[in-house]
């Protein structure tokens, strides 16, 4: 099997066809927009944070199967994670998708499907879009949280 069809695993096709958490989150505490200016893929990521935990996550937007499946799996996997755990997952996923790191045991096995993207440099940005957006959301949210605390003091 060649690189591209190897990438289109059943799990990716399934998440593309029936994306999980594909909705607006009415009680989101964070909303972050991600964009691939070159290909026009875009998504909005919604998180509901309680203290340090992501209690709910969802997304909306348009993009290719790789970016959609990636966002779908990511929103499923980060629910219940702490900010630090989610950030660590972002780092490991980036490593996997760019070929800098091998699949490691700390990463959920469903994400193994994205390992093939590292061999298709023009598609790496599709796979990491949701994860970049999550990273930005957590950074912005923690900034906003610090400001809220500062104001309360």
């Amino acid at each position: 099997m060649t690189d591209s069809s190897a990438l289109y695993h059943e799990i990716i096709l399934d998440h593309n066809r029936r994306p999980r958490n594909f909705r607006v989150l009415p009680d989101a505490t964070v909303e972050e927009r991600g964009l691939n200016p070159l290909c026009g893929d875009e998504l909005t990521l919604y998180l509901r944070m309680e203290d340090d935990h992501i209690v709910d996550a969802s997304f909306q937007g348009s993009g290719c199967a790789i970016s959609r499946a990636s966002a779908s799996m990511m929103t499923t996997l980060v629910k219940g994670k702490t900010r630090a755990e989610a950030d660590a997952m972002v780092e490991r996923f980036r490593g996997l998708a760019t070929g800098r790191a091998e699949m490691d045991d700390d990463l959920p096995s469903s994400l193994r499907a994205f390992a093939g993207v590292a061999r298709l440099p023009q598609r790496v940005k599709c796979a990491v879009l949701a994860w970049h957006t999550l990273h930005a959301a957590l950074r912005n949210e923690s900034g906003a949280a610090r400001e809220r605390e500062a104001r309360q003091r």
């Binding site: 070159l38 026009g40 893929d41 290719c64 199967a65 790789i66």
Partner: peptide, 28 residues
Amino acid sequence: IHPHDLASLLDERQICIRAGHHCAQPLM
């Protein structure tokens, strides 16, 4: 099927096509 996915699948048969907004977002 998103055009990028189509282009990737065609690429494995050594077919080069363009996929995306073609630098013409107002037209898209």
